[in-house]
Design a protein around this nucleic acid. Sequence first.
RNA 1: GCCCUCAUAGCUCAGUGGUAGAGCACUUCCAUGGUAAGGAAGGGGUCAUCGGUUCAAAUCCGAUUGAGGGCUCCA
Length: 604
Amino acid sequence: MADTQSQSNNPDELYRIRHSAAHIMAAAILEMFPDAKLAIGPPIKDGFYYDFDLPRPISTDDFGQLEGRMTQLIKQDVPFEHEEWPKAKAREFFKDQPYKLELIEGIEDETVSIYKSGPLVDLCAGPHVESSSACENFKLLKVAGAYWRGDENKPMLQRIYGTAWSTKKELKHYLHTLEEAKRRDHRKMGKQLELFGFHEMSPGSIFWKPRGWTAYRQLKNYFREIEAEQGYEEICNPSFYHEDLFEQSGHLEHYKDSMFTMDVHGQTYCLKPMNCPDTMLYFKSKKRSYRELPLRVAEFGHLHRNELPGALGGATRVRQFVQDDAHIFLTKEQIFDEIGMLLEMIDATYGLFGMEYEVEISTRPDDFMGAVELWDEAEEGLKEAMKEAGKPFTINEGDGAFYGPKIDFQVLDCLGRSWQCATIQLDFQLPLRFELGYTGADNEEKTPIVIHRAIAGSLERFFAILVEHLAGVFPTWMAPVQAMVVPITDEQNDYAWDVADTFKKAGIRVEVDQRSEKMGYKIHEAETRKIPYMLVVGGREEEAGTVALRTYREGRRGTVPVEEVRDEIVDLIKNRTLDVDVEISALATQGEGDTGKDMAERGY
RNA sequence: GCCCUCAUAGCUCAGUGGUAGAGCACUUCCAUGGUAAGGAAGGGGUCAUCGGUUCAAAUCCGAUUGAGGGCUCCA
């Protein structure tokens, strides 16, 4: 997506440049390590990689030499020449290249496609640039391990990632965006702003500090509020269940490895990895009528998933988290309206933070369960609701879960990275597994459909995405401290507390910095903490019952009566105004999701 | 779980065989200063943990734990 937004070229050209840059890197690697075994080297989103089997581990310290050799090849402007070889010839040529041999065996045609570029002869479907000078705007980025063919039972190769662009300006911009992403990394901001931390006594779990927890609670309250407005009821179930619950839901058989289990008096109990099964118990806790549908049940349950140690990372991949989860029990006739409501909620939520999003609908897979007519009707309901909402969407045919079709939402942050957050999944199976029923108008027992939905997904992860999107600058309604009163000298401390009192009574989170420091020092610290409102009070302000207002966003705003500032902040909170500057970058960086797997399949 | 890298004060980091340093933060004192850091003094580290090599280890080697970048996974 980034590619199409760059000014001067089309995606196809960038694809060629990156694919060719990968080849040039392979040529340079062969110069450095003549015994290197080459695997594959495809272009990916924003760059390229090549997988190698090398005699020793390579590190970023080797990049200088490697980039130097690449630059030499590029300066020589070697042409990329395409040839078609009979398989036999290719087998002979690549006899010392086991990975290439394996690839050749996988090709069905009688001939294989070969590209020559300077010293490198590579098995490759192409396409490439005319000659190597087109790849001059490149940079190597990182090394990583990667399994051959992505299979954990196959050998671990060394992957070198790089980026390449058609102009120096684009390369520079991209590298700058990477820097920016690093600068606003939620782990860094979380530490700097004292929002949250981690501790090795509980790897993969977030330790919320007062400031972060305050902001987090505002976010959670927002979800509570919109859910209450839309007729949801909230429950709170245990975290800890006998394994039979997950036996019944079907989770145990597929996801046992990801669940924390323990022995309790000879019985096996598990920490719940999701809220669905226990919400089913709630539905079944009494006799239900069609009059209750759609029944919307929210639960902010604490979920635990036993992620592999190597898979943990910051707040985005944790072992313990909370989802803004809800389950809606309804009839198939109610799907259309319900989806419409959800789309509005999702739109409103992302709008709060100035985030864009893309939508994908996934339809019936081959191994589906349930009645075809039910699937067809449900999918139609989803599509109609999307059209009604006027939102463009793409369809992933056959990509739905076996239990029902789904809509996924990809949020785009201000650096152009995309994150899978909201999801709406229809489920025809869980109600059957739990033998859910309600009494219809005709006094017959019927089975409801369940919608699983989340808007933020994991609140922890969504919070982290927000921190990076906003660069740690929360809108006033979410800010841990919304206003800091700064008395100029100790003389004004009493007045400062009076001002703070006025704010507190209006529900504003306010603090007084009454340390005997110079006001410049206090302002500096308030700015560093990104506190939206700074209220300086000196002798003049005390006399007049005013404050000298300074905001994080606008700087000095002059003298304003206390009540006026109070009302302004109250307004921002009530409306949840986005009073921060969110600069949207045109260029994307590497977000999650698109690791180039699909491209790797296209052109080796 | 697998590959690579990393771990020194609360934070950011210097210190590559000879008994541990800086800046910020913290404490105390001076200064009461009008919009992004006033000055001085002081406290604080079994150099992640365990083991090995060595006369001597923060420094070299191994293991463990945790973190980072990827791979696999992500209901």
